[in-house]
Design a protein around this nucleic acid. Structure first.
Lengths: 221, 221
DNA sequence: CTAGCGGGGATAATCGATTATTGCTAGCGT
DNA sequence: ACGCTAGCAATAATCGATTATCCCCGCTAG
């Protein structure tokens, strides 16, 4: 039969994770086990397990004997995460470009196509971009780095990405003037033509960093 | 004030973590909640919490409905982690060297001094290096990167380090011919003289990687 | 003799209740 | 009036027991 077999624990975890990422809770706001348990119809134990998992992912913070809260997020935090991504992802992109095969090229093209054809906003009223676009955006960036051949680095990418999504949700970092579409197109093309150095530079620029900011980060703003 | 106030949960977690890192459990071996609970005199819930925390740290793996096991570790895994470290840490070292102040220099010197004066092995019979040396080794590498000014990257370093320690424990990766002492000394000196590029190269070499291995990643000259 | 099919034991997951800790507040003493 | 301390309510942490799931093994049919 339709063995949907999704354990309560997983359901609660995914629901809570999605809620945090969607911004249903403000940074610093306590995640009260009681409310979550009753609102989801599960016991405290599974809520606790969900929270522990979120902590492992960086989507919740634990204050011993004082419960769990949503971690800090905002402009400053986003800057830190962007710098971290700019420190790691260019190297991964070079590795991916050097190692990627035809399968990889195909995935990159497919991911870019979906991203380019997915509307950023569901409708005019939404302040934040749509889930579909966020997924496509994630998939495209993931595809670019996919062929780096190192799952530890890919895990790190995923970790940075979720942290980045949370912080962007609570920051005004949406530079409205930027032409993200053109930047993604350029990234795709440089990847497919195997121009590692140029692609790495384009990625740093895409992250809103200048190369100077990074490698020789002498001065701080 | 005998207020030692270490909650059972934390005690169990630390104990289990230490046991895994010391190699008391073989990779792939199930971590049985029952045994751990009775051996530590706590309930299943706190063992479960400890295991969830370990999962978040990468020191345990969860097989749904089949419990928890120690993750794979060995030569191959160690190589992957070393490559990841070689992809990330040189950039962090450059940032640290660019941004570090006198306080940082002092910490680096202190950490190197302790490392250099700590015997690697407690006694001749031990197959693995001592806890004191492992701590000093960790502290030295951490100190080198400490001033990079990005806590997200530092968290990533810590994550890589623990994974690295676990894998090294189960691999024969101890290249006996290597002169780790000289390599650490060189790293300290290049850091203190602020030679970022040379230090980054020395770090890659210290990790047992050749620059070519990284698909010429991290080259920023 | 082999492949498929339950039965039974082990163990992971979940629950409801109990215990410990925290932050607040009212009361006391100076 | 002010600061300090003991009591109180809220809630985090822990526990013991119950329920659900998986895996192994013996059985039976072909």
């Amino acid at each position: 039969m339709t063995d949907n077999a999704v354990p309560p624990s997983t359901r609660a975890y995914e629901s809570l994770r999605s809620a945090v990422l969607h911004g249903d809770f403000r940074p610093g706001q306590p995640l009260k086990p009681q409310e979550l348990a009753s609102s989801q119809g599960v016991s405290l134990a599974v809520v606790r397990e969900s929270l522990l998992r979120l902590v492992g992912e960086g989507l919740a913070e634990r204050l011993p004997n004082r419960g769990f809260v949503v971690p800090e997020a905002g402009d400053a935090r986003w800057q830190v995460i962007a710098e971290a991504r700019a420190a790691v992802e260019p190297t991964m992109l070079r590795m991916s470009i050097a190692r990627g095969d035809l399968e990889w090229e195909t995935r990159v093209r497919a991911a870019h196509h979906r991203l380019a054809r997915t509307p950023t906003y569901d409708n005019e009223t939404d302040a934040h971009y749509s889930d579909a676009w966020a997924t496509a955006h994630h998939e495209f960036h993931r595809a670019l780095l996919d062929a780096c051949g190192n799952d530890v680095l890919l895990d790190t990418f995923e970790r940075f990405w979720t942290a980045s999504e949370l912080s962007r949700r609570w920051s005004a970092a949406e530079s409205p003037g930027r032409d993200a579409v053109a930047e993604h197109l350029r990234l795709e093309q440089l990847a497919l033509t195997r121009e590692g150095d140029a692609a790495a530079e384009a990625l740093v620029a895409h992250l809103g960093m200048t190369a100077a900011n990074l490698a020789k980060a002498g001065r701080k703003s």
